[in-house]
Nucleic acid binder design. Sequence first.
DNA 1: GGCTATTGGTATTTTATTGGTATTATTCGC
DNA 2: GCGAATAATACCAATAAAATACCAATAGCC
Lengths: 260, 260
Amino acid sequence: MSEAADQIFATLRHQAQSGAPLYLQLRKSIEDAVNRGLIGPGDALPSERDIATKADISRVTVRKAVQDLVKGGILVQRHGSGTFVAPRMERVEQSLSRLTSFTEDMARRGMVVRSAWLDRGLYAPSPDEMMVLGLSSSELVARVARLRIANDTPLAIERASLSASVLPDPADIGSSLYAALELTGNRPVRAVQRISAANLGDSDARLLEVPPGIAGLHIERISYLASGKVIEFTRSIYRGDAYDFVAELRLTGPSEEGRP
Amino acid sequence: MSEAADQIFATLRHQAQSGAPLYLQLRKSIEDAVNRGLIGPGDALPSERDIATKADISRVTVRKAVQDLVKGGILVQRHGSGTFVAPRMERVEQSLSRLTSFTEDMARRGMVVRSAWLDRGLYAPSPDEMMVLGLSSSELVARVARLRIANDTPLAIERASLSASVLPDPADIGSSLYAALELTGNRPVRAVQRISAANLGDSDARLLEVPPGIAGLHIERISYLASGKVIEFTRSIYRGDAYDFVAELRLTGPSEEGRP
DNA sequence: GGCTATTGGTATTTTATTGGTATTATTCGC
DNA sequence: GCGAATAATACCAATAAAATACCAATAGCC
């Protein structure tokens, strides 16, 4: 457990002879460690017992300090699991290069992620879908829609459309659409992604639990097989106030590149 | 199976006495091996049993680690066949000039583009600018702001800040900021760009000739010199209804064979 | 085609570690 | 002296971590 969490004890000893109650000293130490970023959202604190023995005070005293911070929303406790720094709702950023792993990205920030299925089924294709996916009106389209949730806050709506021939049973997708496609041998090799902004409509806003009219990031992605055939068509809507897309650009070649 | 997959066990033993749960250690080892390219997309992992006996831990523990990575989309499992590194979408390197080339982009859509200057001058730096550009309060900052117009429709507002030392006279910029920087030998080689959505404020909306509150794309870009120094800091606002950012993603992996 | 070794998948149990709580002693201020 | 805040002790409950034993699908060989 050591790591950077030991910083707690450094500041603790520093104020040891202040005369203030022990639990207040400890509380301040922990608070400082969080505020100074020594331990960030999602990080685990040492167990109450560990803190107690290391600081040489009773566990109940530790508990008092910790509980205060839990009440204040600074920490989160999970019975049988541990004590953690409460995640803050700040802008989350996603690098464009890792667009496929929402789950991983969020987990790295100490957020508990889950998805709620909005839709999983086979339908008659819309004109849009027929055009993009190259379907005839007699074929079916598989639609997979889910709400992405981080720390009980809905962050995004993802709606994917695929030809039913590549995803005959939309219900048995695990957590990754790409993994499911991989299993059936339909591997996209290329995708074009289009990012724009749009005001959220009523139904989307309701799903994302924000007022209607708020700005949202609208991402449209079309994935292609090696054969050039379109395999997937995804429209995602991200909450504009909680999500950043980050791209790192590199200037290639000499300065003669076309410029504005 | 041996090959490079054995690298997993090397890093595993390395962190053996970290005290962390076994399955976390293993998960990290595998994750590292993938991230460092020791095992690439499509490559097979040793079987769960092999990993278990080699690392001298239970197979269920191996399973826990592997499953986490499957959930995160890093690995793919096929019952009766094996565990494989999942394919991954990667953003194609996009040249700096290309992404910023408003003019070129619009011209491709057959639009007549022009710009209107909103501001060109030297100012005392704001705290933001001092921080990002690394300026002291006694130095000056060059601000360049312009309205981008296509077919007589305002599309975007670009506001750039630079140290006055690299752009002593903001007034003599031609049509390209980058060209001006090139002349003084200050060529950015890298930039980090952050795309988000936000509702347009009153003044920006007025400039863009849209009603306030409409969704806009907010792009923040920080450009770096080869030395690592920040040279430019641009905040742009695009009309969300009239502009798309397009990125092409490519799936990395074994091109043909090697597919399980 | 069908057998078989090998693969991942699952259910169940044990153990250690975590937070949760009730109860009691001490200290300090009024 | 009384009472509230402080601190310590001992025990309870939930969860995670790990191991065992067995099931099911796939691939490959004959």
